[in-house]
Structures are given as C-alpha cells and as structure tokens.
Simulated scan of single mutants.
Amino acid sequence: MHNTAQLQQRIIEGLKEIDMPEFPQNLYEPIKYLLQIGGKRIRPLLTLLAADLFSVDDTDNALPAALAVELFHNFSLMHDDIMDNAPLRRGQQTVHEKWNPNVAILSGDNLLIMAYRQLAKCPPEKLPQLLEAFNTMATEVCEGQQLDMDFENMASVGIDDYLRMIRLKTSVLLGTALKMGAILGNADDNDAQHLYDFGVNVGLAFQLQDDILDVYGDPAQFGKQRGGDILANKKTYLLIKALETAGTDIRPELDRWLATDGPAEAKVNAVTVLYDRLGVRQAAELAKQRYIEQAYAALDAIGVHTTRKTPLRTLAQTLLNRTS
C-alpha cells in the first residue's frame, strides 16, 4: 500500500506532466492558473486510494482516471464561478475576473475535453465501465448545479429537495472518484457500489458541515466571512429547517431579516439567534451524523481487511472533523 502523501505527490506530478501548448495563450494560461492555485486534490486522491484498497501495487494504472476526475472538478469550478459571479476561488481571483467570462467558458470547455483525454489512457477493457460511471456523474453534477440556481428564485425549498441537490452537485463526484478507482483495482460490483455509497454519504455530511461552519465556525479558522450564507439568503439546510419549523412567534421576524440587506453584522447576529431558538444547528448536526454513520457502514461492508481501509477512514475523519 502507498501512503497518502505519496499518492498526493503523484497527482501533483501527473498534473504537471499534462501537455499544454503555449498557444493560444488565452486558452491554456487560465487552465494552468486554476490548476496551480491548487486545492487539496481530495477527489483524485480518492481514486488512487480506492485502487490501492484492492491490492493494486502500481497506482500509475489508476492515475489517468484520477487526473480525469481532477480536471473535471476544475472544469465545473471554472463554470460555476461564472454562474455565481464569484470574485475569488481558493483565495485568488477567479478566471472570469482575471481574464473575462468568455475566456473562462472556453477554457472550462477545454478542461472537460482534457478530462476525457485522460480517461482514454485507462486500460481499454475498463473503459466501458469507467465511461458509464463518469458520464452519469457528469450529467448529475450539471443537474445539481441547475437545481442550485433554480433554488435562488424559489420561494420554498424542502429539506429533501436540498439534500437531493447537494447529493448531485457535490457528493456524486466523491462517490464516482472512488468507484472508478475500485473498477481499476478489479473490485467486484458489490464492493465498488459500497465504496461509491461511502463517498456519497461523506459528501453529504461534508456539505452539511459546511452549512454549519458558515454560521457557527470561527472565521479565522474557516477562512470565510461568518454568516455569508445568511447575508446571501442562501437556502442551506439551516435556513430551510428554520423556515419549516418557525412558528408564528418567530417566522415574522425571520422573514423580516430575510427581506433586508443589512446592516451585515446585525443581520447575521439576529438570524443566528433565531437559529439557536429553533434548534436548527442540532438538527443539522444530527443529519450530518446520520450520513457519517451510513458512510462508515458502507466502508465496513467492503470485503477487504480492515487495516487496508484505514487511509480512507482517516481521510474521511479529517474532512468531517474540520473547523476550516
């Protein structure tokens, strides 16, 4: 087995080895820029860890699939940032801000093509399974992004709708990254599905934790302005739960704050107090814990020795116990 640091280093090296022409500069420079500003490379790491789980001694066999996952992820980020009008990504200017939206659209398109180019390097006998998993995931991520945008203009969104959206937008990519590694590691269908379920449930728990940290996290550790979701009236698990459970004593006040743009600190503090009165943080924590339990149950069901699962369990714990 390889350790996580070794696999992460191999991903960094693999990304550097991808051939990118110098011309046209405005097509390839934004791609190099986005890849260089990094991130934790969690998704491609999951692919390599999954392959390693099933006794694949040479994870180079799974590296093209891992790189495809990372390139797809960055494609989706580049386009999502345009749709969200986001000024920053990983603390740096977004591509559409640094260049312009047309450049970001075209560079994002090329990232997606590059992802398929990497997939094509996988063992030919595995390609049908890999493409089926990858294409299903890619469609679902687009569906999740559309639902997220639809929610901005909807007066009412239910908890089940929200969980479906974050499953599609965020979680299926984690699950598919693992499933592709399992396929390349010659796992049987049951184990590949258990690993997929592990990833999806970790992803759901991760997003619920993100919702909680936005309101209750330490801004110095979380790296974001406290209550950014509140200021944007973003339909997170906390807000949806609050709207569902608020009675006549609290709902008018909550609606009043949602209808105002500020002052920012007053709005965040007031809505947080209402959340506390309604117990929505506890509800989100309970939901998060349910997904964590489902994730570990799926991991436990995989038919390999427990010690081989330790790197995946450790990575999940790191993701789900974070304060930033």
Rank of each mutant, 00 (worst) to 15 (best):
Ile250Leu: 15
Leu111Glu: 05
Leu67Phe: 11
Pro101His: 13
Ile37Val: 12
Gln129Leu: 15
Val280Phe: 11
Leu130Met: 14
Leu258Cys: 09
Leu208Trp: 01
Lys179Cys: 01
Lys121Trp: 00
Leu274Val: 04
Gln9Pro: 01
Ala51Cys: 07
Gln225Pro: 06
Gln6Val: 03
Leu63Cys: 08
Leu315Gly: 08
Asp19Tyr: 13
Gln9Gly: 09
Asp188Met: 10
Pro87Asn: 15
Asn186Pro: 02
Thr136Ala: 12
Leu168Phe: 15
Val95Cys: 13
Ser171Tyr: 02
Glu152Phe: 04
Val200Ala: 02
Phe222Asp: 03
Ala51Asn: 00
Ile31Val: 11
Leu45Gly: 01
Arg10Pro: 00
Asp60Gln: 14
Ser156Tyr: 13
Ile11Trp: 04
Gly38Gln: 08
Leu111Tyr: 07
Ile82Pro: 01
Gln92Asp: 05
Gln145Thr: 08
Glu22Met: 08
Asn26Gly: 02
Gly185Arg: 01
Gln129Pro: 01
Ile230Leu: 06
Gly279Ile: 05
Asp160Lys: 04
Ala264Gln: 11
His194Gln: 13
Thr314Glu: 15
Gln6Phe: 09
Asn110Asp: 03
Glu253Ser: 14
Ile113Gly: 08
Val215Lys: 06
Leu147Tyr: 11
Leu319Asp: 07
Gly39Ser: 10
Leu286Gly: 04
Glu132Ser: 15
Ala301Met: 02
Leu46Glu: 01
Ala5Lys: 12
Leu299Asn: 02
Arg10Lys: 15
Asn61Phe: 07
Thr314Asn: 12
Pro30Ile: 10
Gly262Cys: 07
Asn102Glu: 05
Gly158Ala: 13
Pro101Asn: 07
Asp57Val: 06
Arg256Ser: 12
Ala264Ser: 10
Asp161Val: 00
Met137Gln: 09
Leu53Asn: 03
Ala259Gly: 15
Met154Leu: 14
Gly223Phe: 06
Gln8Lys: 15
Phe54Ser: 01
Ala242Asn: 07
Asp58Gly: 05
Tyr28Thr: 04
Ala297Leu: 07
Thr236Met: 12
Ala86Trp: 14
Asp188Phe: 06
Ala138Arg: 10
Glu140Ala: 09
Leu106Glu: 02
Asp214Lys: 00
